[in-house]
């Protein structure tokens, strides 16, 4: 019985990050990288994967050490753990993927202060077991990644006529440069939020009927 419950909640904890507790569309966390780096799919994907690595590793460590950390100093200790993994990602990108590292600029080091990661450490990993914390981290961070890819995709297609660097719209389409600028980020994010909420509303009405 207990095992069955566990299995069920593992699924729930993983899936919730994609829709019900999507970090961008529901919790509206991590807005700074979300708006700044999603000018193309590859930028969104790299940012997302960096967050997957940092969030999963730090949730793992936080949930392992949660019982030996005195409550009063938990935030500084979490930040040190998160900063360690972020610095690793930053050095890795500089060593192996220099162009991407340049494109993402300061936003990789800034993952340290990304509220999604501290949020998961504080709200989940510091209270739950190791396995569930990792599952939760994977769900939330992949939910984050997919949303960044969608945002980056829309902005790249309309702003540069390309998707993942491949041309998809013909020469006849004049690129909407505004999509690559900050207003384009806000407009696209706003529309995505609207779409998500209207789908949720419709689902709810269907269920109540």
């Amino acid at each position: 019985m207990a095992a069955k419950d566990d299995r069920k909640s593992v699924g729930v904890e993983f899936v919730k990050g994609f829709w019900k507790e999507n970090p961008i569309l529901v919790m509206l966390l991590g807005m700074c990288p979300t708006l700044a780096v999603t000018t193309s799919v590859i930028n969104g994907l790299t940012m997302g994967l960096a967050v997957v690595f940092v969030l999963t590793c730090s949730s793992l460590i936080v949930s392992i050490v949660r019982n030996i950390i005195p409550k009063q100093v938990r935030i500084p200790v979490f930040i040190v753990i998160i900063a360690t993994f972020v610095t690793m990602v930053d050095l890795f990108l500089k060593a192996f993927l220099l162009d991407l590292s340049k494109a993402l600029g300061p936003f990789i080091p800034l993952i340290v202060v990304n509220c999604i990661i501290l949020g998961r450490a504080e709200a989940f990993a510091s209270k739950k077991g190791v396995f569930l914390s990792v599952v939760d981290a994977l769900g939330v961070s992949f939910g984050f990644t997919i949303t960044l890819i969608i945002l980056g995709g829309i902005r790249e297609v309309l702003g540069m006529r390309t998707f993942f660097g491949h041309p998809v719209l013909g020469e006849g389409f004049e690129p909407w440069i505004v999509m690559l600028l900050p207003p384009g980020a806000f407009i696209t994010l706003g529309l995505l939020l609207g779409v998500k909420n209207s789908i949720d509303k419709r689902l709810k009405e269907k269920r109540s009927r």
Binding site: I68, P70, V73, V77, V80, A83, M88, L91
Partner: peptide
Amino acid sequence: IMTLFACISGGVLSLV
């Protein structure tokens, strides 16, 4: 505890 974590972090990072 804080010193311990800072030391581990420093050690790991200098290795990387």
